[in-house]
Design a protein around this nucleic acid. Structure first.
Length: 549
RNA sequence: GCCUCUGUAGCUCAGUUGGAUAGAGCGACGGAUUCCUAAUCCGCAGGUCACAGGUUCAAUUCCUGUCAGGGGCACCA
C-alpha cells in the first residue's frame, strides 16, 4: 500500500514538475505519523516542491490531492504548513492483519537486492575468554546480520582469528611460564612483561602438564609450540561455547595464518604498489595514506622485515572482495578508532568503492551494580567475562540490553535492572505481551469459543485496533531503516512501543466475549498478529518469545 | 595538540536522517484487581534540545565556532 501510494505520488510530482518546465528530481517522504489526527499516512511532497514551483505549499498540496483522487478514492486533507494527510479504508487494515499472520516475509524488504554482504564481528584474539565488551559486539553484529538477511542481502558472518603475530608468542610464553611456576621453577622462567595474567592461563598450564609433564625438559621452541597449540585450542573452544550459548553463530572462521600460507600478503602488497602510494623510508615500507585524508602515513613493513598488523589486514579485506563480497561490514571495538581511516585508504588504493566498506565502532560498556561501576581491564587480567554476565542476567536480558542503546554511545549496563523480574524490565515487558496472546487463545478454547482466524475482522477494527495495527506495520519500516543504518536498537525501541500499545489495548478492551463471537474472533486475530510481529522483532534481537511466563 | 563519540525531563536514553504541540522508561505524586496473567493499566508533574552564529518555507536534526565529558593517538595488535 505504502509502495503503491509512493509510486503514484511520485508520478504526479514528476508530471507537475514537467508542466512547470523544471528539470529536477524531488524527493519526498511518506510516513505513518505519530499522531492519529494526522491520518494513516502523511506526505510532505507539497513542501518539497515549494522551491521549484514557487507557489504556496497549501495550493500545491491541493493540486496533488486533486490528481491523487483521479486515480484512487482516498480521504485526503491538508494540514499544518502543507502536509497531505491520507486516510485508508478499514479493509486495508484487515488485509494487513491477515498478511502479517500468513506471510512469513511480511516484514522483509529488498534494499539489499541480493547483494553479497559480509558481516565480520567479534573476531576476538584467541588469547583469553570473551568479555562484556565482546558481548556487545556479538549481540550487535548478530542482529545486524539478521537485519540484513531480512533486507535481501546474501549474508555471511565471519570471525577473523588473529592466530599469528606477536600476541601468540606472548600467549605461548605466558603458558610456559605458568607451567614452570607450577613445577616450582618459576624463577628460571620469568613471566613475560606483555604476558596474559588471567587465571585461565594457569588452568591451561595445569591441563597441559597432565599430558606434558616434561615440558621444561624438551627443546624450548618445540615446547612453546605445544603451549601455543594447547592455549589456542582451549581458549577458542571456550569462546565458541560462549557464543553458542549467546545464540551467535558464524558461517566461517578465517585464520590469519592462512593469509601467509597462501601468500596473500605478498600479492596484496604487489597490488598496492601499483597504486603508486607505497614508498620506502628509514628501511621501512610505508603507505602514503595522508594523500587520502589520513593524518599520518602508515607502516606496512617494519625495518626489521616484519609486517605490521595493518598489512595482513589489508590482505584479508582484499580477500573478502576476491570471494565476491560487495558489501563489507566490520564491527570493531572503540579502540580501533584510528584503524578505519587507514583501511579505507588502503582499499581505495586497491580500487574498491568507498561505500562498499563500512566499519562500525562499538563503544565501551560499563557494568553498573548497586549503582556503582564495575571496572574492567583486559591488560590486568581483571576483565569481566561474558559468561559471567550471561549467568547473572540470562541470555534474553543480556542480548536485549546490549541492543537497547545506539552502538555509538557508551553504554551503562545496569545488572540489577536486567535481573529484575519486574515491570521495570523492558525485556519482560515485551515478552509478557507475547505470552499474553498465547494465553488468550488458550482461554478462548477453554471457554468454548469457536475461534476462526479472520472471522469478524473488519467488524472488530475500530480506532484502537487501527492504532495497534499501525504499530505492527511500522515494524516493517523500522526494520528497513535499521538495516540501512545498521542500527538494531531501533527495533528494540519499537518493540517496547508495540508492547505498550498492546498492553493498553488488552486492559481497556475485553477481548474474549461469548456473546459476540464475531468481534472476539476478529480481536483474537489481531492479537495473533501482534504476537507474530513481536516474535519477528525479538528474533532480530536474538531474544526468545515465550508462550507462557 | 590531533582524531572521534557524546551533551535532550531529577536519572537512563529515543527522536523515522530537515517536518506538525520534542517523546519513552525509571524515579516523584495520585489512582485501578468480584472481570481474559497486576511481569499490567490510567492520570498528573517535569524542557533555554550545552551555548553562539549560519544555511531555508521549516533546525533537536545540516554547517561553523565555543564549552563540558568519554574513548583513541606507536615501525603495538
Amino acid at each position: 500500500m505504502k509502495e503503491n501510494l509512493t509510486n503514484i505520488i511520485d508520478e504526479i510530482i514528476k508530471g507537475m514538475l514537467k508542466d512547470a518546465g523544471v528539470n529536477e528530481e524531488v524527493t519526498f517522504s511518506l510516513v505513518i505519523p505519530e499522531k492519529e489526527e494526522h491520518g494513516d499516512f502523511a506526505c510532505n511532497a507539497a513542501m518539497q516542491l515549494v522551491k521549484h514551483l514557487k507557489k504556496n505549499p497549501k495550493i500545491i498540496a491541493e493540486d496533488i490531492i486533486n490528481k491523487l483522487n483521479e486515480k484512487l478514492k482516498l480521504d485526503c486533507t491538508i494540514a499544518g504548513p502543507g502536509f497531505i494527510n491520507i486516510k485508508i479504508d478499514v479493509s486495508w487494515y484487515a488485509e494487513t492483519v491477515m498478511n502479517i499472520i500468513n506471510n512469513e516475509k511480511y516484514f522483509h524488504n529488498n534494499i539489499g537486492g541480493g547483494k553479497k554482504a559480509m558481516v565480520e564481528f567479534v573476531s576476538a584474539n584467541p588469547t583469553g575468554p570473551l568479555h562484556i565488551g565482546h558481548g556487545r559486539g556479538a549481540a550487535y553484529g548478530d542482529s545486524v546480520a539478521r537485519l540484513l538477511e531480512m533486507s535481501g542481502y546474501d549474508v555471511l558472518r565471519e570471525y577473523y582469528v588473529n592466530d599469528a603475530g606477536n600476541q601468540m608468542n606472548n600467549l605461548a610464553l605466558s603458558v610456559y611460564a605458568r607451567a614452570a611456576e607450577i613445577l616450582g621453577k618459576g624463577s628460571e622462567v620469568p613471566f613475560p612483561e606483555a604476558g596474559y595474567h588471567g587465571d585461565y592461563i594457569i588452568d591451561i598450564a595445569k591441563e597441559l602438564l597432565t599430558t606434558h609433564a616434561n615440558i621444561l625438559e624438551i627443546d624450548r621452541k618445540e615446547a612453546l609450540e605445544i603451549c601455543l597449540g594447547k592455549a589456542v585450542q582451549t581458549i577458542q573452544a571456550d569462546i565458541d561455547n560462549d557464543l553458542k550459548e549467546f545464540r551467535v553463530t558464524f558461517h566461517n572462521y578465517f585464520s590469519e595464518k592462512s593469509l601467509y600460507k597462501n601468500k596473500l600478503v605478498e600479492s596484496t602488497l604487489k597490488e598496492l604498489e601499483k597504486s603508486g602510494k607505497v614508498f620506502e623510508q628509514d628501511g621501512a615500507l610505508w603507505l602514503k595514506t595522508t594523500d587520502m585524508g589520513d593524518d599520518k602515513d602508515r607502516v606496512l613493513r617494519k625495518s626489521t622485515g616484519e609486517y605490521t598488523y595493518f598489512t595482513p589486514d589489508i590482505a584479508y579485506h582484499q580477500n573478502k572482495y576476491d570471494r565476491g563480497f560487495e558489501y563489507l561490514i566490520d564491527i570493531l571495538g572503540a579502540d580501533h578508532h584510528g584503524y578505519i581511516k587507514r583501511m579505507q585508504c588502503a582499499l581505495e588504493c586497491l580500487n574498491h568503492k568507498t561505500e562498499s566498506f563500512k566499519a562500525t565502532l562499538i563503544q565501551m560498556v560499563n557494568l553498573i551494580q548497586n549503582g556503582e561501576k564495575i571496572s574492567m581491564s583486559t591488560r590486568s587480567g581483571e576483565f569481566i567475562p561474558l559468561s559471567w554476565l550471561i549467568n547473572e542476567v540470562g541470555v534474553d536480558a543480556a542480548r536485549f540490553f546490549y541492543n537497547m542503546r545506539s552502538h555509538d554511545a557508551q553504554f551503562d549496563f545496569d545488572i540489577d535492572l536486567a535481573k529484575s523480574k519486574s515491570n521495570d524490565n523492558p525485556v519482560y515487558y515485551i515478552q509478557y505481551a507475547h505470552a499474553r496472546v498465547n494465553s488468550l487463545i488458550e482461554n478462548a478454547n477453554e471457554k468454548g469459543i469457536d475461534y476462526k482466524q479472520g472471522q469478524g475482522l473488519e467488524k472488530a477494527i475500530g480506532s484502537e485496533e487501527i492504532k495497534l495495527i499501525k504499530n505492527m506495520v511500522k515494524l516493517k519500516y523500522v526494520i528497513e531503516l535499521s538495516a540501512q543504518y545498521l542500527e538494531p536498537h531501533k527495533v528494540s525501541y519499537h518493540l517496547q512501543e508495540l508492547a505498550a500499545s498492546f498492553h493498553s489495548y488488552y486492559y481497556n478492551n475485553k477481548i474474549l466475549n461469548n456473546e459476540d463471537v464475531d468481534t472476539t474472533c476478529g480481536r483474537l486475530t489481531i492479537c495473533e498478529a501482534v504476537a507474530v510481529t513481536i516474535k519477528q522483532g525479538l528474533d532480530i534481537l536474538g531474544v526468545s518469545a515465550p508462550k507462557r511466563m
